[in-house]
């Protein structure tokens, strides 16, 4: 039985591989994740903590005058004097007064800058860049996966191929299980590709910006691995939902449309429920749980029972709702697929 499911899943991957939709989604996710990284890098590289503009000389006929930018980094690096070289004393003294005032604020400003830098490097250098890449699955990835699942299942109805598969003696359960497995494999391959590109970017950033190159901290690498598994788990309810909508409507196009409507509708519902009934009530929605699920939890020390309890509570509070979605919609999909006739479209 397992062998047949694996064989069918292999063919389902081949069937998906030869369609354009998964490739378009993959290119979009890879480009988006790279763009997101680039944006973060731009923000970081252009940051000039506490920057002030000092007047460098007299103004022109229209009252415009040139300025010199001084930041806390200039003060920290002792580069102020060189920046003010050649200025007239009148302007230089005035500038020095302003710089002195900035110098007093700099410890706080530089501490904040340092924190921001650490956050950036955590996200952009290896292995943090890998987890950062999965963030894209947590935004557009949901809807892409739902559309992909609805398409993969729905075309079996639309093309009438489901009838021929079942008429060959394949059980409905195996057919559906293989489909879910294949979609998981495709999403897994998507993760690997994103990891590859984010890994290359992270490698470059690690060697150009990080103080100590790539970290050898095993915990950080383990966390990246755990994030990959968590991201895959987060995708499973969306695969199931996409398939459920396709089975419900017995159609690829209707399944895709309902998937998109579900995605948008949940966002609106989340806001309405959150506003009127409070954020806890909105936890019934899958889209509320998945971002929380991807939030990194600090591993507790094994000799700290209260910390372990808190960790488990936080872990289960998102794990279980996602599991509930998988079980409820998964079993409903299996039941519907078993129960429903695969009716001929017309004629006798």
């Amino acid at each position: 039985m397992i062998r047949q499911i694996l064989n069918l899943a292999r063919w389902d991957v081949i069937k998906l591989r030869r369609r354009w939709m998964p490739w378009v989604f993959l290119v979009f996710i890879v480009l988006s994740s790279q763009l997101r990284l680039l944006t973060e890098y731009q923000k970081f590289s252009n940051a000039d903590p506490g920057r002030i503009e000092v007047q460098a000389g007299p103004g022109d006929e229209e009252g415009e005058y040139t300025t010199i930018g001084i930041s806390c980094l200039d003060i920290q690096d002792g580069a102020v004097e060189s920046r003010l070289t050649g200025m007239q004393n009148e302007y230089r003294n005035k500038a020095l007064q302003e710089i002195e005032s900035l110098r007093e604020r700099c410890p706080g400003t530089l501490a904040m800058y340092d924190t921001a830098r650490k956050i950036f490097l955590n996200n952009a250098a290896l292995p943090g860049s890998l987890s950062f890449g999965f963030g894209m699955f947590g935004t557009m990835g949901y809807v892409f996966v739902m559309i992909l699942a609805a398409m993969a299942m729905g075309v079996e109805y639309t093309w009438g191929t489901a009838r021929q598969v079942l008429a060959k003696g394949c059980s409905r359960g195996r057919f559906l299980a293989a489909k879910i497995l294949a979609l998981m494999a495709v999403v897994g391959i998507g993760h690997l590709v994103v990891m590859l590109f984010m890994g290359i970017s992270g490698l470059v950033i690690s060697y150009t910006l990080a103080d100590n190159g790539i970290t050898t901290d095993v915990v950080q690498w383990l966390r990246a691995g755990a994030d990959a598994i968590k991201s895959m788990y987060m995708m499973l309810p969306y695969i199931i939902l996409g398939m459920f909508f396709a089975i419900l409507t017995s159609s690829a196009s209707s399944g895709i449309v309902i998937s998109v409507v579900f995605f948008i509708g949940e966002s609106i519902l989340r806001w309405i429920i959150g506003s009127y009934l409070g954020p806890d009530a909105a936890r019934i929605l899958i889209s509320v749980n998945t971002p929380l699920w991807m939030t990194s939890l600090e591993f507790p020390a094994l000799d700290d029972p209260p910390a372990i309890y808190n960790y488990m509570r936080d872990f289960l509070s998102t794990f279980l709702p996602i599991l509930a979605y998988i079980i409820v919609f998964g079993s409903t999909s299996f039941w519907l697929f078993h129960r429903r006739d695969l009716r001929p479209s017309a004629g006798g």
Partner: peptide, 15 residues
Amino acid sequence: RTGAVVEFPSFYPHL
């Protein structure tokens, strides 16, 4: 042990 086509032959167009 049966070979059947019901209504019309249905195959994957991209294969």
